[in-house]
């Protein structure tokens, strides 16, 4: 007898995560590295590597981040890479799948993904998935925590930040805003600011990301932040307390503004409820003090309450899986 597996996938700019009906959870970086030459190909025994393994060997590879702009870059290579990533994470998450078994999937994509983009995802997964449902990422976050009544989901990702107003029904276009700022933008800001203050310091994308993830903050105060960096290979200590806060504020300021705009344009009877239910998700929700900073920015409007999701890494995938499991079979049949 053939089995039906259900999976929820969060296809993000920097990470792709999956949650399955068999209870598995997996996450990988959304990238593919193609061998630069024959020697590299020989060394790896295949023409490409995926995710973290690719990142670890990136010097011998041409890296493709197919969702770098928050949506699948519309070229052949990016489409192929997306399909490789999805196929691979599904295979890894469902090792028990036999020929003839079926997979029903919900795939969360950035809220602003174009129709062409969504179609491309359906197309590239046709060979692996029996049924595919494309959902907008903030909606799957809402689904994961069962919050469909008045609330505002703010998903701070790597490529973009999605804001989505929930009011008991499927969110419409006017309920959603996508900002082209996220973790990657913050990385750029931090790099520029450190180099402006300490021109000779040696920085890499990995180092910046780790500094941000460990020390990034938007609270009023912080203990002095001193990091060890190198100059011509010689390690030295550098003070970056103010630099870091100023950079982080450049990310949270536009988010506050977009939030105020979505609250301010909502039905006045329900604005207060919206303000009291701000839910912050995505990797950026880990920024220290972000909930308080967003609340503060709402004080001219009468104050608000913001809360971060606990399982930022998987809540999109979990929401998508939950949708799959709760969807009546007759709905699936239509697809």
């Amino acid at each position: 007898m053939s089995t039906i597996f259900h999976v929820g996938i969060d296809l993000g700019t920097s990470r792709t995560s999956i949650a399955t009906s068999t209870g598995k959870r997996l996450t990988t970086r959304t990238c593919v590295g193609y061998a630069k030459d024959v020697i590299a190909q020989k060394r790896f025994g295949k023409p490409f590597l995926l995710g973290d393994t690719a990142l670890d060997n990136r010097l011998a590879l041409n890296m493709v981040w197919p969702l770098a702009e928050g949506v699948i870059c519309e070229d052949e290579k990016a489409l192929e890479a997306t399909s490789l990533i999805l196929q691979n994470i599904i295979d890894e998450a469902l090792p028990e799948k036999k020929a003839g078994d079926q997979i029903y999937a919900a795939i969360g994509v950035p809220a602003q993904a174009s129709i062409t983009n969504k179609k491309a995802i359906i197309d590239t997964t046709r060979s692996v998935l029996s049924k595919v449902l494309i959902v907008s990422e903030p909606f799957s976050v809402a689904y994961s925590i069962d919050r469909f009544d008045e609330c505002l989901i703010i998903d701070i990702g790597a490529g973009t930040t999605d804001l989505c107003r929930m009011h008991g029904a499927m969110p419409e276009a006017e309920d959603q805003t996508t900002l082209k700022v996220g973790g990657n933008f913050l990385d750029q800001q931090i790099t520029q600011a450190i180099l402006a203050r300490y021109p000779d310091v040696q920085l890499s994308a990995q180092i910046i990301r780790r500094i941000k993830e460990k020390y990034g903050y938007v609270s009023e105060k912080s203990d002095p932040i001193v990091v060890t960096l190198t100059e011509k290979g010689i390690p030295k200590e550098y003070e970056i307390t103010d630099i870091l806060r100023e950079c982080c504020l450049q990310l949270t300021d536009p988010i506050s503004q977009a939030m105020q705009q979505l609250v301010g344009s909502f039905d006045p009877d329900f604005q207060a409820r919206l303000r009291q239910n701000i839910i912050v998700a995505g990797g950026g929700s880990r920024l220290k003090g972000i909930d308080i900073a967003l609340e503060k920015s709402l004080s001219p409007y009468g104050g608000g309450e913001a809360i971060c999701v606990q399982d930022a890494e998987y809540c999109g995938a979990i929401g998508a899986l939950k949708m799959c499991l709760e969807m009546p079979p007759e709905y699936w049949e239509q697809l």
């Binding site: 039906i4 259900h6 399955t20 009906s21 068999t22 209870g23 994961s144 925590i145 069962d146 780790r210 993830e213 460990k214 839910i279 929700s285 880990r286 220290k288 909930d291 809360i307 971060c308 999701v309 606990q310 399982d311 998987y314 809540c315 979990i318 899986l321 939950k322 799959c324 499991l325 709760e326 969807m327 009546p328 079979p329």
Partner: peptide, 23 residues
């Protein structure tokens, strides 16, 4: 990094531990 979890956080409800389809 391991310790960087926000103080106030909303968690995914336990109902989600059921992984079988239930319309």
């Amino acid at each position: 990094l391991a310790t960087a979890t926000p103080a106030r956080a909303i968690s995914v409800p336990p109902s989600l531990t059921t992984t079988s389809p239930q319309s």
